[in-house]
Design a protein around this nucleic acid. Structure first.
Lengths: 207, 207
DNA sequence: CCTACCGATCGGTAGG
DNA sequence: CCTACCGATCGGTAGG
């Protein structure tokens, strides 16, 4: 009875909901939240306006669900869990390689949704999001304290935030350079360079 | 004849224009571009809708002028020009202090306008903006090459972008932490920490 | 610079 | 899930 099994694992309307989320995501990336109408979303998903309200309470609810589905968490955390390495340096180098492929795949999708949240909702949904996400980062942040012996005498939170800041700074400048007329020299491995500077900045000088 | 002088230095309607730019800026920060209506802007500036069109061609024109007036350039470049220092390290430390006070004053105004540009215009105005701005950064970027003897063997563009990325990463994470439930420990000098990591990351080890 | 208006479109709903 | 509609508001303009 494959039909029944399908019904169980993929209940009626679940497909439509997914199509709506995907369509809304694309629209939000293209023109932001207020620049996207419920009609555009419905049309892109292949149904009429009224149909959306069978799946979502209102427009903001659509955005919250899209944000939940597509924020960088889902691409960063698996990388954090997959990365290994005896020394902190090896761990971070491997982590960088994993994040790099994620960036290559998702490029234009990692930041804009967060920017929309900041700009059009003034970060209204960030607290709830952070509460759900931050626990998953604990093991990663703990790595730094486990390997503190390899670090220069720096406050641990400073090291952790410097790492996150380095990544975010790379992503944002990548985003801007992409738009600007000068662009970024593709023959340079910018991410590796940034990590090099960071590692040399936090690690003890070889004795 | 003070009245005539006033007329010359502050022509008819120039006041209104300034009020409109300020009002529009505040509205854009509060709810983004598409979330702000011409009526809201007009009302906040103390006039009727139609009045706006005596000063601006259309809504997008208002945004472009606001962006031109308020982007980070006007706060960064004076700091770049004021900063001095014999060694690169001293120069950057002093620059950081200048930028810090700018950040404290402007906090919520440095990034959102750029984010709006990214999100709601897909960076459409960035090329023109970059062309006008980048020349002013040349002398600053040149500092790094002038002091190359103090640097580890790194590609110069990597060093320059790492510095900008460090600053941007600090600003963005500051913005996010500000919204998040955990916040940032105010007893830590995060910016100094980030610069410390950066400097140690690019400078030659003391021989 | 305001009043009064234009057509278009918005988010959302009733009723089937 | 669609049709047909609601009141509200949008960007923009004519005419004074």
């Amino acid at each position: 009875m494959p039909t029944i099994t399908d019904r169980v694992t993929r209940p009626r309307g679940e497909d439509t909901r997914r199509r709506l989320i995907e369509a809304a995501h694309a629209q939000f990336l293209a023109q932001g939240y207020h620049g996207t109408s419920m009609r555009h979303i419905a049309q892109a998903a292949g149904l009429a306006v009224g149909g959306i309200y069978n799946h979502f309470a209102n427009k903001e609810d659509v955005f919250v669900e899209v944000l939940d589905e597509y924020h960088p968490y889902h691409v960063i955390v698996p990388a954090l869990e997959a990365a290994q390495g005896e020394r902190l340096e090896d761990f971070l180098l491997q982590l960088m390689r994993l994040i790099r492929t994620a960036i290559q795949d998702q490029r234009d999708q990692l930041l804009p949704l967060i920017f929309i949240e900041m700009v059009e909702f003034r970060g209204r949904h960030i607290p709830a999001l952070a509460a759900r996400i931050l626990p998953a980062f604990e093991p990663f942040l703990a790595r730094f304290s486990e390997h503190q012996a390899e670090l220069r005498p720096l406050a641990l939170p400073v090291v952790q935030r410097a790492f996150v800041g380095m990544l975010v700074g790379h992503l944002v400048t990548d985003f801007i350079l992409q738009k600007s007329p000068i662009g970024a020299d593709p023959s340079i491995d910018w991410l590796a360079g940034a990590l090099d500077v960071f590692l040399h900045g936090i690690l003890k000088d070889p004795a």
